[in-house]
Amino acid sequence: MVTSLTEALVVGPGIETHVRRRRRLSFRLGVWLSALLVVFVTVAAVDPSLLASGAPDTINLGHSFIAPSWSHLLGTDPSGRDVYTRVIYGARQSLVIGLLATLIAMVIAIILGVTAGLGGRWVDALINRFLEVLFAFPGLLLAFLFVAIFGTGVVTEVVAVAVGSAPGYARMIRGQVLAVKGSGYVEAAYALGHAPRRVISRQIVPNAMRPLVVLATMGVGQSIVWASSLSFLGLGVAPPSPEWGAMLDAGRDYTLQAWWLEIFPGLAIVLCTLAVTSLGRYFQQKLDGGIGA
């Protein structure tokens, strides 16, 4: 970091490590909280019955619109279903959609990016032009276009989010491949007489993929937000299901009487995204700073 380096030059190394240690401590706390939250969400996604005793779709009209209390932590919805239970059960769908969308986006991006980076001038120019055209659409708009063409539904929602985010990743991967291709150790590998195929599979691709871990982690957060945006607009998962965006959509008409229907599923999305993103940032610092940071 520029700041601490210059400070260190002025006031001496002692202060610098002191500041850094303090910063690391508060940073660590955030990372631990995020990790804890991710574990919690993962447990909810794998086996929701561990965290919630009821069923997400038990209708109990006598218990509709109960404000948050000890018996219903996050209140109940118009049909008397427990919001906490539904949020817990919704984790699976939201998480799976986010993960799948990121995975598909990454696969598309890796194919495009690696081909562009290694394919020579013409291939590179062609793919670059194609990406440039895709960049003319803001990502979310690309997702809308995709839904318009293939209709609403879970599968289109996942692919739409993937298509919307892939161009950005592809460009980054291409840059990464080009950077690695021109680096000293690749040149050295060629100089040692290794076959191009071997250099590509052993040196270029693995090294270009390394920053992807971070990219993918942060991508999951964005995918969850985009997917829930589509559901919220009624263009993705349909309301009876407890997916978080769909819950928000279903609660829209009751915002005035029952604010908890809108606040808590949204909070789930926000916290989940925030946790995933700050873990991504943590990995990034680890990668950038190497052993020292």
Binding site: L248, E262, V270, S278
Partner: peptide, 21 residues
């Protein structure tokens, strides 16, 4: 960092609940 990660629809709902309702 926190604010940049907020989904717009949720922020909109919060603002609406607090300032309009």
């Amino acid at each position: 960092i926190f604010v940049a990660g907020l989904p717009q629809y949720w922020l909109g709902i919060i603002l609406m609940v607090v300032f309009a309702f």
